[in-house]
């Protein structure tokens, strides 16, 4: 762990915990109360504030050149939360496969754009 200060580790831990926590707690509730429009607002506000803290203002310490986005924290945190709440990891396999393929396809497009 070269180049990491204690502050880097703590701020990355905190930022990574914050994002999936906000999504799990607030996003579903917003949809429950306001329907799809609630999800629209949640997508703006939760992700906007998270981005501002994690990347805009730098809670997430980037140790290498390859960008580790706060999105990976959202995926891990929500997978953990939904599994604790009774979701079966085995039944998530098709979605996981489509996620990996989507990441490869998205990465391919991004790699040829510039």
């Amino acid at each position: 762990m070269t180049g990491w200060t204690t502050a880097n580790i703590l701020s990355t831990l905190f930022g990574a915990a914050l994002f999936p926590f906000m999504i799990a707690v607030a996003w579903g509730k917003m949809v429950e109360v306001f329907g799809a429009a609630g999800g629209w607002v949640a997508g703006f506000w939760i992700v906007g504030v998270s981005w501002l803290l994690n990347h805009g203002l730098g809670l997430h310490h980037q140790a290498g050149d390859v960008w580790i986005d706060m999105a990976m924290a959202a995926f891990v945190g929500l997978f953990v939360q939904s599994t604790l709440a009774g979701g079966k990891p085995g039944k998530a396999v098709p979605a996981l496969i489509s996620g990996v393929l989507g990441g490869l396809l998205g990465g391919l497009i991004l790699s040829i754009m510039a």
Binding site: V66, W67, I68, D69, A71, M72, A73, A74, F75, L78, L96, S98, G99, V100, L101, G102, G103, L104, G106, G107, L108, I109, L110, S111
Partner: peptide
Amino acid sequence: AFPIGLSAIFG
């Protein structure tokens, strides 16, 4: 978020 995060790692 999973494919989003992977997109940056790959591309």
